[in-house]
Design a protein around this nucleic acid. Structure first.
Lengths: 242, 242
DNA sequence: ACATAAATAATGTATAGACATAAAACAGGC
DNA sequence: GCCTGTTTTATGTCTATACATTATTTATGT
């Protein structure tokens, strides 16, 4: 089962063997895998080493363990895929295109005047409202309206967002604990005018809200022309297709 | 820092303390946390116990460790959010609406005739091609074109997909290791006609491909009318907003 | 038969110690 | 200064052992 082991620690090799057997289908959901003392004998190591491998696979969601009963292959239940939070600036420059940012508006709003559908900042907090246009090789390809709670990110008030895109800056500086994405298709309206597309053209709208604990950090609505822009999510892990 | 500990194991408490300090912002990205021997003294336990807590936080992506240098709070780099793979059937019935499936076409294709952009099945494999329409309370709201590699899922050839939606069946029966989603906005075209929307109406198109190892399992293109249908992805974890 | 108690067998947690490994710090020698 | 070894130090891995916990099995008393 195990391949080349010269570079791998033993617990990583045990883990890899079992993971491989599960992902290849040799071990199927519900199957019991050998007891710790059997794996000890099989690999000629201490129980703690086997235990470390199995504990890791439990955390990864591949195994379930029950005292006295044994260790079993989990039934796939995490039907999730990862959607990369698009860092527009990094993606454009990563493709070798020239990225340019235009700051169309910048306002400081009191918390009370913020649409609660978009963000519910704490009472009395100030909110920075930005409207930006993103250009690749001089051609506009995205417009974004963003709210940033200065209660959560006070440093944002002093950042020059004509140089670095607000999304890139936030990605690098502020950790979040919760995020919600909402993806919609809609005909080009008010915002899409700045993209230079025809009225009524199908556009992709990405709403993203992030929090740290209970505190809202940012809300952004990004509008992309439907033609030529996809959101791509790629995921490696265990689950079931649908 | 630690709250109630009566029910938690010591390594879990250490881990929770550090995780809490990171998520609350007390510890910031790049900060060094105490050395193992300092945490040993602080919690009055063995190094292995501290090590187990820290190793778990490394696997969770919250910490980075460098020999000789110490242990540091990770810079948010996992800019990912989870996009639930939509189980259309479960979602509709979960909202208390009546779900109905219409199988518009069912074909068995040789591997060679499959568009390689959609799927690259192994030579000689047969591919099941399905076209379905999903209805909620009698109203069509999604159309899907799906390919299923019978090499990967031979049982699919015998399933009656007029009863259970192919997505739901695959979710329950077939594990995958890799998935790719591609989300596009486009005006209603050929497929969207079956939705009963006007020509040119903005639609949301979701392409999903899944693999187990190198082997392709399924490709599906689902078309939703732009009005009234969002994809929502919610994620709890550590990262940075953008 | 049936409820209850005890033995058993698996995982869960923790320990103290040992050696390996890698990167930073420090020394010399040029 | 600059390069090159050497030492130091923190993490990485592994061991052998101990006791705790929990679900199952077996034994026991009525």
């Amino acid at each position: 089962m195990s391949l080349d082991d010269t570079t791998l620690s033993l617990h990583a090799r045990i883990r890899g063997d079992i993971e491989g057997a599960i992902l290849s289908g040799t071990l199927r959901p519900g199957d019991r895998i050998p007891f710790e003392h059997e794996l000890m004998a099989q690999y000629g190591c201490a129980r703690m080493t086997v235990n470390k491998a199995l504990t890791g696979l439990v955390e990864a969601g591949l195994l379930d363990r029950r005292k006295r009963a044994g260790t079993f292959v989990s039934r796939p239940q995490i039907h999730m895929a990862a959607l990369a939070i698009p860092d527009i600036q990094a993606e454009v420059t990563g493709r070798g295109q020239a990225y340019r940012l235009e700051l169309l508006s910048r306002d400081l709003l009191p918390a009370a005047s913020v649409d609660p559908e978009r963000m519910r900042p704490p009472r009395g907090a100030k909110v920075l409202a930005l409207t930006c246009r993103h250009l690749a090789d001089g051609v506009p390809f995205a417009v974004e309206e963003r709210l940033i709670s200065l209660k959560a990110v006070p440093e944002a008030a002093t950042v020059d967002f004509t140089e670095v895109a607000p999304g890139s800056w936030l990605l690098a500086h502020v950790p979040w604990t919760e995020a919600e994405h909402r993806i919609t298709a809609a005909p080009a309206g008010r915002l899409a005018g700045a993209l230079g597309v025809e009225e009524g053209m199908a556009c992709l709208i990405l709403d993203r809200r992030t929090w740290r604990g209970d505190q809202p950090i940012t809300h952004v609505r990004q509008v992309f022309p439907g033609a030529g822009f996809d959101l791509v999510a790629r995921f490696t892990g265990a689950g079931g297709p649908g």
